[in-house]
Amino acid sequence: MAAGGDHGSPDSYRSPLASRYASPEMCFVFSDRYKFRTWRQLWLWLAEAEQTLGLPITDEQIQEMKSNLENIDFKMAAEEEKRLRHDVMAHVHTFGHCCPKAAGIIHLGATSCYVGDNTDLIILRNALDLLLPKLARVISRLADFAKERASLPTLGFTHFQPAQLTTVGKRCCLWIQDLCMDLQNLKRVRDDLRFRGVKGTTGTQASFLQLFEGDDHKVEQLDKMVTEKAGFKRAFIITGQTYTRKVDIEVLSVLASLGASVHKICTDIRLLANLKEMEEPFEKQQIGSSAMPYKRNPMRSERCCSLARHLMTLVMDPLQTASVQWFERTLDDSANRRICLAEAFLTADTILNTLQNISEGLVVYPKVIERRIRQELPFMATENIIMAMVKAGGSRQDCHEKIRVLSQQAASVVKQEGGDNDLIERIQVDAYFSPIHSQLDHLLDPSSFTGRASQQVQRFLEEEVYPLLKPYESVMKVKAELCL
């Protein structure tokens, strides 16, 4: 049975990233139509530049190519590739079939990587351009969430054990800070992308030097003109047959890092959902379990974690691919890159769409948070109580021993009897502590235990987050809708 299948058929496997999760716009960027249309555009740009620099290419040939950029006979191309065992030459023939007058000058002087690699770089750039505003929107939604809850005390956790208090907004800023680093890295790697350009079979530009009869300047002009037509500021000066596969490492490393950030955020949300302090959106008709109707599973956060793990592992592909590119190139890269580049971007696209949807509907339960604080705060307040007693004339050592005994009794009630923490009640009825009984409410005010959390939130948002989001103001209103 021949390899390949009808990918629109229910009898043929289709990647869930495309069929179930990723956005239509990201799927289109990695589609065959987008790819092969870009090949034709690159052939047109090459012909236009070659004509401008004096090669015998007519206006009629150029116009014929322009008129057929979208006229792609995919069936013919597939048949040609089956016959020739070469995808680029299959599309040269297919393009030439609908451009008979231009057929002889299509791909003039070029090698397969002229269309293959340059198209990949265009796709990487455009895919990054799709991700950047999506990530900015996630940051914006979380920034709104953090600002609104900047002063809401909550129990902090280290080692997932109760620690000092923080605020809900401050905790959210930990998430935002990681995503801001990801946004900066995505922008950097996007701006650092260079075009492969017009380089020939081993990167020496020998074929173009021959076409222009040894004119170095025209060869350099050709490279520059096509690079500018493709919208790049610069091209690699040095290439082998391909652009260095280190570029793929750079791009997928940034995406993998984004995956790590999203995994951490969504894990926190899942843990908070278990504590009943916070939940992701839950639709009115949504079913959490087929057997347990009360369940409210954090399905979206779980999906993000599941896909983020996949995204983090994909960076190993370009690392290994770059390491086995012998001399000017081997074909070890080809099949692998067809999979890992598309999957990385479709996965990143999915987790950003999902995280935006989550961040637009996060639900906080202040009463649950308050109750958990009441359970733990008495123990945390013991040092403040000791200091207040010393100020009232008591002995630190005597007070410490009193607190120690009462704390152990209260802990026994919590752990052995399943009761509430009654340390404060014990202190309130103990005559030894009568000098500070009137101060206990103040000493137990949760806001006095959150330090500068709310001020940190305000400063972080104003100095770091809002300036970073400013270039994306025009796209901030787009909502994230999930079908599944």
Results as ranks from 00 to 15, higher is better:
Arg338Thr: 01
Gly4Ser: 12
Gly203Tyr: 00
Thr111Asp: 03
Asn384Trp: 06
Gln456His: 09
Ile369Trp: 03
Ile265Cys: 13
Thr227Tyr: 14
Ser438Tyr: 08
Pro366Thr: 14
Phe433Ala: 04
Glu213Leu: 09
Glu401Phe: 12
Glu360Met: 11
Asp182Glu: 05
Ala2Trp: 12
Ser257Gln: 10
Ile287Arg: 02
Val247Cys: 15
His217Cys: 08
Glu464Arg: 07
Leu152Ile: 15
Thr382Lys: 00
Gly451Arg: 02
Ala453Arg: 01
Met89Pro: 01
Ala480Asp: 14
Phe74Leu: 12
Leu46Asp: 01
Glu148Gln: 12
Cys180Glu: 03
Asp420Ala: 03
His217Thr: 12
Leu331Gly: 04
Ser289Trp: 06
Leu128Phe: 05
Ala291Val: 02
Asp178Leu: 03
Ala78His: 04
Lys295Thr: 00
Ile424Tyr: 14
Arg83Thr: 11
Val315Glu: 07
Tyr365Gly: 07
Val251Thr: 15
Val251Cys: 04
Val363Trp: 11
Leu17Gly: 04
Met292Asp: 02
Met181Lys: 13
Lys284Val: 09
Val219Thr: 10
Ala77Pro: 06
Ala136Leu: 14
Arg149Val: 08
Ala230Gln: 00
Arg404Gly: 08
Leu121Arg: 02
Glu462Tyr: 11
Ala344Glu: 04
Arg149Cys: 13
Leu135Thr: 12
Gln416Lys: 10
Arg37Cys: 09
Asp87Cys: 06
Ala18His: 11
Ile436Arg: 03
Asp32Gly: 11
Lys284Thr: 10
Val413Leu: 09
His86Asn: 00
Ala146Thr: 07
Thr267Leu: 05
Ser19Thr: 00
Asn185Tyr: 14
Glu302His: 15
Asp178Met: 00
Ile403Gly: 02
Cys27Trp: 11
Val219Asn: 10
Thr227Met: 06
Thr354Ala: 13
Ile385Gly: 05
Pro293Glu: 00
Glu79Gly: 13
Lys477His: 15
Gln428Leu: 12
Gln439Lys: 04
Trp43Ser: 07
Leu255Asn: 08
Glu25Lys: 13
Gly288Phe: 00
Val414Glu: 03
Glu148Val: 11
Gln356Glu: 13
Leu311Arg: 03
Phe36Ala: 14
Ser412Phe: 14
Ile385Glu: 00
His93Val: 13
Val465Cys: 05
Trp39Pro: 00
Leu443Asp: 04
Arg270Gln: 12
Val475Met: 14
Trp175His: 02
Ile139Ala: 06
Arg303Thr: 00
Ala163Gly: 09
Leu482Tyr: 13
Asp349Phe: 02
Ser257Asn: 14
Tyr34Glu: 13
Glu228Thr: 06
Ser301Gly: 15
Leu174Asp: 12
Glu220Pro: 01
Pro56Val: 10
Glu220Arg: 10
Glu213Gly: 10
Glu360Asp: 11
Thr52Ala: 09
Gln210Thr: 10
Arg303His: 01
Leu155Asp: 09
Pro471His: 15
Glu220Phe: 15
Arg85Leu: 08
Pro56Arg: 11
Gly451Pro: 06
Met299Tyr: 10
Glu48Ser: 07
Val414Asp: 01
Thr94Leu: 11
Asp191Tyr: 15
Tyr294Ser: 01
Gln41Leu: 06
Ile105Tyr: 04
Ala90Ser: 07
Ile369Thr: 08
Gln320Gly: 14
Ser261Arg: 03
Arg309Cys: 08
Ala22Asp: 10
Ser323Cys: 15
Ile105Lys: 09
Ile57Val: 05
Val315Tyr: 08
Glu283Val: 10
Thr354Trp: 06
Arg303Asn: 05
Gln210Pro: 13
Ala335Gly: 11
Thr167Gly: 01
Lys276Leu: 06
Ile122Ser: 03
His442Pro: 06
Leu440Arg: 01
Leu128Asp: 08
Ile72Pro: 02
Pro24Gly: 12
Gln439Met: 09
Asp223Trp: 01
Phe379Val: 04
Arg194Gln: 10
Arg137Ser: 11
Leu42Trp: 00
Thr204Glu: 02
Ser253Gln: 12
Phe28Leu: 04
Leu152Gly: 05
Arg374Cys: 04
Phe379Asp: 01
Trp45Gln: 09
Ala348Gln: 03
Val315Trp: 08
Leu46Trp: 02
Arg372Gln: 03
Ala146Pro: 03
Ala291Ser: 06
Val390Ile: 04
Arg14Gly: 12
Phe157Asp: 00
Ser290Asn: 04
Ile386Asp: 03
Tyr365Ala: 06
Asp144Ser: 12
Lys284Asp: 10
Ala256Ser: 14
Met380Val: 01
Val475Asn: 12
Ala453Ser: 14
Lys170Cys: 08
Asn118Val: 01
Thr354Phe: 08
Glu70Val: 12
Ser140Lys: 08
Leu108Pro: 03
Asp120Phe: 15
Cys305Thr: 14
Ala47Trp: 02
Gly419Lys: 15
Ala410Asp: 14
His107Asn: 02
Glu462Ala: 10
Phe379Arg: 04
Tyr114Asn: 02
Gln205Val: 06
Ala392Leu: 07
Leu121Ile: 03
Val413Pro: 05
Arg234Phe: 06
Lys35Thr: 02
Asp6Ile: 14
Leu44Trp: 06
Tyr21Gly: 10
Arg83Glu: 07
Leu53Asp: 00
His91Val: 09
Ser359Ala: 08
Arg338Trp: 00
Glu250Gln: 15
Arg452Ala: 13
Glu279Gln: 11
Asn384Ala: 11
Val168Lys: 00
Leu46Gly: 01
Met292Trp: 04
Pro24Phe: 15
Leu211Pro: 15
Met387Tyr: 12
Thr111Cys: 00
Lys218Met: 06
Val457Trp: 00
Lys66Asn: 15
Leu42Lys: 03
Arg194Thr: 05
Gln161Pro: 00
Leu406Gln: 06
Ala2Lys: 11
Arg149Thr: 10
Ala335Cys: 12
Gly54Val: 02
Pro162His: 04
Gln286Cys: 02
Arg234Asp: 13
Gln408Met: 05
Ala90Trp: 08
Gly214Glu: 11
Thr227Ala: 06
Gly156Asp: 00
Leu331Lys: 02
Lys224Leu: 13
Val168Ile: 07
Thr154Ser: 07
Arg190Phe: 06
Thr166His: 04
His91Leu: 06
Gly54Lys: 08
His97Asp: 07
Val168Trp: 03
Ala22Phe: 11
Glu302Pro: 01
Pro24Tyr: 12
Arg40Asp: 01
Leu314Val: 05
Val198Leu: 08
Asn68Gln: 11
Ile427His: 07
Ile72Val: 06
Met389Val: 14
Lys276Asn: 08
Lys477Glu: 15
Asn421Ser: 09
Lys470Arg: 13
Leu193Lys: 04
Lys402Pro: 05
Thr347His: 15
Leu319Ile: 06
Leu482Phe: 14
Leu444Ala: 04
Met76Phe: 09
Cys98Thr: 03
Phe145Pro: 02
Lys367Asp: 03
Phe145Val: 08
Pro467Leu: 13
Thr242Val: 08
Gln286Gly: 02
Ile249Gln: 10
Val189Asn: 15
Gly214Asp: 15
Ser438Glu: 13
Glu462Pro: 03
Arg83Gly: 12
Leu209Gly: 09
Gln325Asp: 03
Glu70Ser: 14
Ala348Val: 11
Asn71Ser: 07
Leu69Lys: 04
Val189Ser: 13
Val324Cys: 09
Leu135Arg: 01
Gln241Ser: 00
Glu25Thr: 15
Met181Trp: 09
Leu142Gly: 03
Asp223Pro: 01
Ala146Gly: 03
Gln409Trp: 11
Arg337Cys: 09
Thr158Gln: 02
Ala335Met: 15
Thr52Gln: 07
Leu307Asn: 14
Gly156Trp: 00
Asn336Ala: 12
Met380Phe: 15
Ser31Ile: 00
Gly200Phe: 03
Ser12Phe: 12
Arg33Pro: 09
Glu79Ser: 07
Leu362Thr: 07
Thr158Ala: 03
Ala453Phe: 02
